[in-house]
């Protein structure tokens, strides 16, 4: 029998993988993929809690909004990443060092 704990374990794993990608990747697009994993982990939490703890569709409503926001954020982020690639020919956050104190 599958319980809430099972879903939380999967979402925790996805979240940690996402964090790991964000911390170790040296490529903005790969970091963005890590963020997508984090967002999905959160969404899975919302939907699972909605079924097992509350009943009803509250968590699913939130999940829907998060998917829409992820699309908007990805569009903006990729436009900005392309922009910086044209300017500096790199998308490694460690190599963009024009701004320094």
């Amino acid at each position: 029998m599958i319980t809430l704990t099972h879903y939380l374990a999967v979402s925790s794993l996805l979240f940690v993988f996402g964090m790991f990608a964000v911390l170790t990747r040296r490529n903005a697009i790969a970091m963005l993929m890590g963020v997508e994993l984090i967002l999905n982990a959160a969404n899975l939490n919302f939907v699972a809690f909605s079924k097992y703890v509350l009943g009803g569709v509250l968590g699913q409503v939130v999940g829907l909004f998060v998917i829409v926001l992820a699309a908007a954020e990805a569009a903006i982020a990729l436009a900005i990443i392309l922009d910086i690639y044209q300017e500096l020919a790199t998308i490694n956050p460690d190599e963009t060092t024009e701004l320094k104190g």
């Binding site: 599958i2 879903y7 999967v10 697009i29 963005l32 993929m33 997508e36 999905n40 899975l44 939907v47 699972a48 909605s50 079924k51 699913q60 999940g63 829907l64 998917i67 829409v68 992820a70 699309a71 990805a74 569009a75 990729l78």
Partner: peptide, 26 residues
């Protein structure tokens, strides 16, 4: 998972928007 969690509509949106849209963008 969404299908297992009774969130059929969200599962469809996940496939269409996330897998279909956002990943093509990426």
């Amino acid at each position: 998972f969404y299908v297992l969690l009774d969130a059929d509509f969200l599962a469809v949106i996940q496939l269409l928007v996330y897998v279909g849209g956002i990943l093509v963008l990426v």
